[in-house]
Design a protein around this nucleic acid. Sequence first.
DNA 1: GCCAACGTTGGC
DNA 2: GCCAACGTTGGC
Length: 156
Amino acid sequence: MPYWLFKTEPGCFSFDDLRNSSNMIAAWDGVRNYQARNFLRDAIRVGDRVLFYHSSIPEPAVVGIAEVVRAGYPDGSACDPNGEHFDPKASAHNPIWYMVDVRYGEPLPRSVSLEQIKNNPALADMPLVKRSRLSIQPVSEDEWNMILAMGGLQTR
DNA sequence: GCCAACGTTGGC
DNA sequence: GCCAACGTTGGC
């Protein structure tokens, strides 16, 4: 079962926002990076698990887990001329950008900070550590288990 | 707020 | 298709 890490600025969309969403499900829209788009469109499947990461705050951290409940489909926000994520090159025929739906899972009893992740040699290969700005990134099973353990969750 | 990393754009 | 300029991300 593949695992992923999704980054978000909590001031924009936080883990609590996901919990408070209708049915605790939200569309992960607005991704405008081709590598991340390719994951959303081609690789992410229903049932995949997601580490929910808060970025651009004093202590960036993985704060919880979520689950994919709908695989990649066209991101309509690219076609809204008044929206923040409008892309004039996108159309119904050629959507360009994709999104998935995720459902709130559970918070980590202890958030796992970027600093902790960087200090753990077992996590040195994560794109997060390599200073990639990639907002959707794959996570290995070992990395998933390690971060859940660090956060005080039994592997699940 | 700074700035390094890095992705994108566009002239040639 | 190269690469300089530019824009964005995100840690600090």
